[in-house]
Computed example of a mutant assay.
Amino acid sequence: MAKADEEVDHEAIRLLRQVLDQWRGPALADCGSALLQEGSAQRLESTRVRALELLAEKLLRAGQGHLISAELAETSQAHPLRESLVRLMMFCLHAWPCC
């Protein structure tokens, strides 16, 4: 069973990384509709941050939390009150290989 869980995590890591790599700047920044920006941009950003958190959780379980530390630090500056994000950043920094 543990082997299957590892495979699922590696596939999830790959897919989450692929999705997050498609993100470019603020949500709907070049959209011409202020109504659409106001209604959806915040939800989309929240979804992006949650995907980043999921990726960090999976990388931590795989012993690779250090791979996402910089991204978490940057995102936590934009969302300093999001405790789950800051917590994950701290765990990833702690997991940074020292040798």
Rank of each mutant, 00 (worst) to 15 (best):
A34W: 11
L36N: 01
Q37M: 05
H66P: 06
Q64R: 09
E57T: 10
A41D: 09
R48M: 10
G39Y: 06
A51L: 10
R61G: 10
E53K: 08
E38T: 15
K58F: 09
L60R: 00
Q42K: 03
A51F: 07
L35G: 05
L60E: 06
R43K: 11
E45A: 11
I68A: 02
G65T: 12
R61H: 11
L67S: 06
Q64F: 00
L52I: 13
E71R: 03
G63H: 04
Q64A: 09
G65I: 14
G65R: 03
L59G: 07
S69Y: 02
A70R: 02
R43Q: 12
L54V: 06
E38Q: 13
R43G: 13
E45K: 04
L55D: 10
L36K: 03
Q42W: 00
R48S: 11
R43W: 11
K58Y: 12
A70C: 03
L55S: 04
A56G: 03
H66D: 00
T47G: 14
K58G: 01
G39M: 08
R50P: 08
Q42G: 13
E57F: 03
A34H: 09
L52Y: 03
A56W: 03
S40W: 14
A34T: 13
G65F: 13
A34E: 15
G63P: 09
R61L: 11
A62W: 00
S40Q: 10
E57K: 06
S40A: 12
Q37E: 07
L60I: 08
G39L: 07
L59F: 04
L59H: 05
I68T: 01
G39D: 11
Q64D: 06
V49C: 11
L60C: 09
L55W: 08
L54Q: 15
L36G: 00
S40P: 00
A70K: 00
S46P: 06
E71G: 02
S40L: 14
S40K: 09
G39Q: 12
L52D: 02
L52F: 02
I68L: 03
R43L: 13
L59C: 10
S40R: 08
L35V: 15
E57N: 08
A41R: 06
L59N: 04
E38C: 05
A51D: 12
S46K: 09
L60T: 02
H66T: 01
S46N: 14
A34N: 13
Q37W: 02
L52R: 06
